[in-house]
């Protein structure tokens, strides 16, 4: 019982912290994020396990997390508010040659990150981008203009 409550608390706490830390652009996790994931995972593990390192505890905590995740994922599909709270909304970074500088700064993204994604799609210059969007999963989508 106590172990399950601890698992739920840590799950909710980590979801909140990871949400506040924010999304960083990129298709793959960078070494920068690797550190975060491993560190947080390791620290959470220590506290979650506590003095009960039994197989039963591990089994039940995994089941608890899986069930809470299932509940939250289901609730997210039913509620737009919850979906926005958990994932945020897509954000426009560049629109018709104009940078959204406040969005870039608040999301801790540089114009180089956008250009890197543009080059990845074979777009060589900024003026060929019609719109650049930071997606909810942290990827940057680039839509090429007609000119």
């Amino acid at each position: 019982m106590e172990a399950s409550i601890r698992a739920i608390l840590f799950y909710v706490f980590l979801v909140l912290v990871v949400r506040i830390v924010g999304r960083r652009p990129g298709k793959q996790i960078t070494p920068f994020e690797f550190v975060l994931v491993f560190f947080m995972g390791g620290l959470a593990l220590t506290a979650m396990v506590g003095d009960d390192a039994s197989l039963t505890n591990a089994f039940l905590q995994i089941l608890t997390i899986a069930f809470v995740h299932f509940l939250i994922a289901t609730a997210r599909t039913k509620s737009n508010v919850l979906a926005r709270l958990l994932d945020g909304t897509p954000l426009i970074l560049l629109d018709n040659g104009q940078w959204r500088s406040r969005t870039l700064s608040k999301m801790r993204i540089q114009d180089d990150d956008v250009m890197a994604q543009a080059r990845d799609q074979g777009i060589a210059t900024l003026d060929r981008i019609e719109i650049a969007i930071l997606e909810r999963n942290g990827q940057i989508s680039i839509i090429e203009g007609s000119k």
Partner: peptide, 25 residues
């Protein structure tokens, strides 16, 4: 956006979230 690209951006929500984030930091 401009009747062309469906983005679904919600800047009002995002501004509130940024405020919440600042407070949380």
């Amino acid at each position: 956006i401009n009747d062309e690209v469906a983005v679904g951006e919600d800047l009002d929500f995002q501004r509130k979230w940024w405020k919440f984030e600042s407070v949380m930091w």
